[in-house]
Amino acid sequence: MASNKAARDGEKIWKTNVDKVNAELVTLTYGTMVAQLCSDFNHKYGEVNQQLDKMGYNIGMRLIEDFFAKSGVQRCGNLRETAETISKIGFKMFLNITPTVSNWSADNKSFSLIFDENPLADCVELPNDGRAQDELWFSNIFCGILRGALEMVQMQVEAHYVADVLRGDETTEMRITLLRYMEDEMPPDDE
């Protein structure tokens, strides 16, 4: 029920409220950036993942404001609602994709986003150096974005990829775990 409404809202916002850019521009810009990071960090993919996450965090902190302004979404009552909003409105609005929310944990504190399509990874083939396939999370910037955005609404989450089609997995799956709701007067995390 809530999920349907979110989907409708997302569709409407995407159609009316959002400026659009060429998909190749996004894909190539992001791809070049990741490739450059890989060469800058001497193909230490762990570091690259970390950098992407950090960049995403900085994007997320800013993006959330834009998200509220354009979507007019109100406070979510629980994590399930948050998850639906992220998928059906957030991702829809910025990338025109709606990752599937699934694999809820028993305590309702963590869930997965399954990406059927990923505009960032169009045409990408990871370098065949025997390590990238095991170490690099190409779209790791998404994890940072969600972490940053949710932190601005007093939710501390942990987000990481557990599978990626680029590595040869069946699906692309991101795991998101709610650590805690932060008090309003908490000082911001020093990152």
Binding site: E24, T27, L28, V34, A35, C38, C123, V124, E125, L126
Partner: peptide
Amino acid sequence: IRLLQNPFY
């Protein structure tokens, strides 16, 4: 073209 769009190529 798809090959060229791969950032790692």
